[in-house]
Structures are given as C-alpha cells and as structure tokens.
Amino acid sequence: MNFSVLIAKTYDDPTQSISWLVPKIGELIYGGIASLLVFFMLFKFGWPAAKKALETRTATIQKELDDSAAARRDAENDAANIRKALSNIDSDRAKMLAEADANVASMLSEGRTRIAAEVAELEARALAEIAASRARVGDELRAEIARYAAIATADAVRASLDNQTQQELVDSFIAKVGASR
C-alpha cells in the first residue's frame, strides 16, 4: 500500500480519530513550514559551525597526520643516522684495530731489531773481554813462568859456580877491561 492510498483512506472516514501517522493538512503545512524554518536555521547557523568544526577537526587530524609523517621521517632519519653511525663505528673500530695491529707489529719488529743489536753488542763485548782476559792471563802466566825460570836459572847457575869458576870470571873481567883500551 502506497502513501497516497493511506491518506485517502484516512480522510474517507471522519469518525476516525487523528491518524497516528498522517496529520491534518494544516498541521502538515505548519509542520512543514516549521520544519523548513528549522532546517533553514540549522543550515544558516548550524551548518557553518558544524562545517567549521569538521574543517577544524580535519585540519587537526591532517596536522596530526603530517606531524606523524614528519615524526616518522625524523625517526627514519635518526635510524638512518644511527645505522650510519654504527657503520662508522664499525669502520673506525676496524681502522683502529688495524692501526693497533700495525703499531704492535712495528714495535715488535723494532724491539726484535734492538734486542738483536744489543745481544750482538753484548756478545762482541764479552768476546773482547774474554780475549783480553785470555791475553792478560797469558801475559801474567808468561811473566810468572819467566820469574820462576829466572829464579831457578839463577839458583842453578849459582850452584854450578865453584870457586875456581868465580876466580876465572873475575880474571876474565880484569882481562877484558884491561884490553878495552
């Protein structure tokens, strides 16, 4: 059943009370005009406020979205920077380790060279001292042997010189001196 049929049936029976759904025409006109006024007032005064509120809310949401995007970009930049810094740290660490290894290798090399030179110098000095000591001991031994040999020779000669030989030595001296001029 359509709406026009329903209205027609209602007005056909005057005994019927006011329809719970279809008002009288006057009420409908007044009601319609009032409704239009209400709509007009709503359109005139409510809509701009609502529109402004919506625009404000939209702007707020957009701003929040923009801020979020900016924050995300910042975060991504920070993350990129951190990753880059991490990469730099790794690079620096590797560089420092390489430099430390190089320094250690250089120090070890220099140390080995210096120690080898010192050892060689000590060996040379020790050999020289040994040679000098050997020569000195040899000289002392020779001198000692010479001293004992001289003492032994003097004793042997003294024992072998009897009085006759002594007199012969004296006479020989006198003869040599006398014959010198």
Partner: peptide, 26 residues
C-alpha cells in the same frame, strides 16, 4: 852479582856479571 864483576866509576858502569846476563835472558 852471582858471578863476575860490576864496576862503577863515576857515571860509567862496566857490567860483566852473571846477574845482568840472567836479567837479559829473563
């Protein structure tokens, strides 16, 4: 002197002693 003679006249020394010969050998 051990044997022989050592004569000193002023600054001049005439030495024909066994001691001096042994010293020379030494």
């Amino acid at each position: 002197v051990i044997g022989g003679i050592v004569a000193t006249v002023g600054d001049e020394v005439i030495d024909d002693s066994i001691r001096t010969r042994l010293d020379q050998v030494k």
